[in-house]
Design a protein around this nucleic acid. Structure first.
Length: 271
DNA sequence: CCCGATTCCTGTAGGC
DNA sequence: TGCCTACAGGAATCGG
């Protein structure tokens, strides 16, 4: 499931192949994703050049002369650069065919992904306008987290997974960052000290940066079939390790549900 | 505003 | 071996 580091890796992988290319055609085999793919896409984009590719939260933005394609990988989506004639497989829903003979192919078995279009400023789009800061930006800090948490009783794990507070932190990295910061996931967000929020912000930046760095090691092979996500390469301390010994103290890792999400933590190391 | 629950979807794993 | 159920997850949306 692509989290922010996987999306960043995808961005770096596709950018050299698509920037400056013109779109020859768009093939939509499955229109029903998280939102219906607009029917007008092919007509709007035919012949348009892709100027640049950027990322906001887990959205990839393909900026063209006429507007911006907004693409989300959901939880099972992958985007690869292939020769246009490579046969499609199951769940290959969309091809964006380029005039260099390549195509951007979206595969998404669970169809939680999205492909939308805006001719206006993408930052003002409904899906993007209320997003919080990027976790790797200077605007994201322990002070920021502490400030916005005042009076809030929601669990701190749910709080940091709220994209209005900070973007790009999915379940895996939320669990890992809270472990590194020594904070119990179910603690009320408003009852975490500034000092611990500073540790948490550092931990979030550290796990994301590490995963991006590991993801970068797969970039050379990106046009092949396996862009292996970064988190398969980093050592996960607690996620999906219920009952296994805590890497710090040996206590068995606990599992609980928080906001309908599996939550893993060490009862001794996280308070 | 705040918060918890529900919803979309399909592949996989576990129980019997 | 196969059927059935539960679960995984991002994030919008709904109801209290």
């Amino acid at each position: 499931m692509p989290e922010l580091p996987e999306v960043e890796t995808t961005l770096r992988g596709i950018a050299p192949w698509v920037c400056g290319q013109r779109i020859t055609s768009i093939v939509v085999r499955q229109r029903q994703l998280r939102y219906p793919v607009p029917r007008t896409l092919a007509a709007t984009l035919d012949g348009t050049r892709i100027e640049s590719v950027t990322r906001r939260a887990k959205y990839l933005l393909l900026h063209t002369q006429r507007g911006t394609l907004i693409l989300h990988l959901g939880m099972s989506g992958s985007l690869r650069v292939l020769d246009a004639e490579v046969p499609v497989q199951k769940h290959d829903h969309i091809d964006i065919v380029l005039d260099n003979g390549k195509c951007l192919r979206l595969r998404d078995p669970r169809r939680f992904g999205a492909l939308l279009w805006t001719s206006a400023d993408p930052a003002r789009h409904r899906l993007l306008r209320d997003l919080g800061p990027e976790p790797l930006s200077a605007a994201f800090s322990g002070e920021y987290l502490c400030e916005h948490a005042r009076g809030r009783r929601v669990a701190v794990k749910t709080y940091i997974m709220d994209s209005r507070i900070v973007v790009g932190i999915g379940n895996i990295y939320a669990n890992e960052a809270l472990f590194l910061a020594g904070i119990r996931p179910q603690r009320a967000a408003g009852r975490v000290s500034l000092q611990r929020y500073q540790q948490l912000a550092s931990a979030i930046k550290a796990v994301l940066n590490q995963a991006i760095a590991e993801g970068g090691t797969t970039l050379r092979d990106f046009t092949a079939s396996d862009g292996r996500p970064g988190y398969f390469r980093i050592r996960l301390n607690v996620y999906d390790r219920a009952g296994e010994p805590c890497p710090n103290c040996g206590e068995p890792i606990s599992q609980m549900r928080l906001g309908q999400r599996s939550t893993f933590y060490c009862k001794r190391c996280q308070r």
